[in-house]
Amino acid sequence: MTAGFSEFYYIKVPYQKTDAMEKYRLSVNGNMQEVSAPEDMPLLWVIRDLLSLKGTKFGCGQALCGACTVHVDGVATRSCSLPVSAVGDRKITTIEGLSANGDHPLQKAWQEHVVPQCGYCQTGQLMNAAALLNENPHPSETEIEEAMAGNLCRCGTYNRIKDAILTASKS
């Protein structure tokens, strides 16, 4: 290791404070997880700050950009706007749980089309697209555009996202 190179820390930080917090048992990516959180804490911050799953991103906090999209019982959901107390026993899937080895047809198509530029919105895009294909395995271009309209990309990867969804829908 040559001096001057960057090393990233990626350490799970357990959340300690428990006063005025409720306990919630959540099903996340097939595992039952217990967290202590205020009832109004959005699922996004439970996922990121309490469970240290960092693939789900914060973009707007108002369900306007889709960067925080996860599946709740298979439905694409903006986790920034869903309080933890409203989750109940529904099953949460994040990008980390989309496939076992990063080999979901959409993930493969994303790589084939080299969709990402900065990449920040892409996990939300993928989760939204995965929910779309579950509902509608062979969407038209117009159906894709409409289904994906809630997910913003500032770099401008919309065309490749559309192409990748079409590729995955044919696989």
Binding site: K54, G55, I95, E96, V114, Y120
Partner: peptide
């Protein structure tokens, strides 16, 4: 293709808020 494409699609790529310290 970009070096990080696989990590990005798996949610493993590290962005600014993804680094935690004890």
């Amino acid at each position: 293709p970009i070096y990080d494409v696989k990590d990005i699609t798996e949610g493993k790529a590290l962005f600014g808020a993804d680094v935690d310290l004890p």
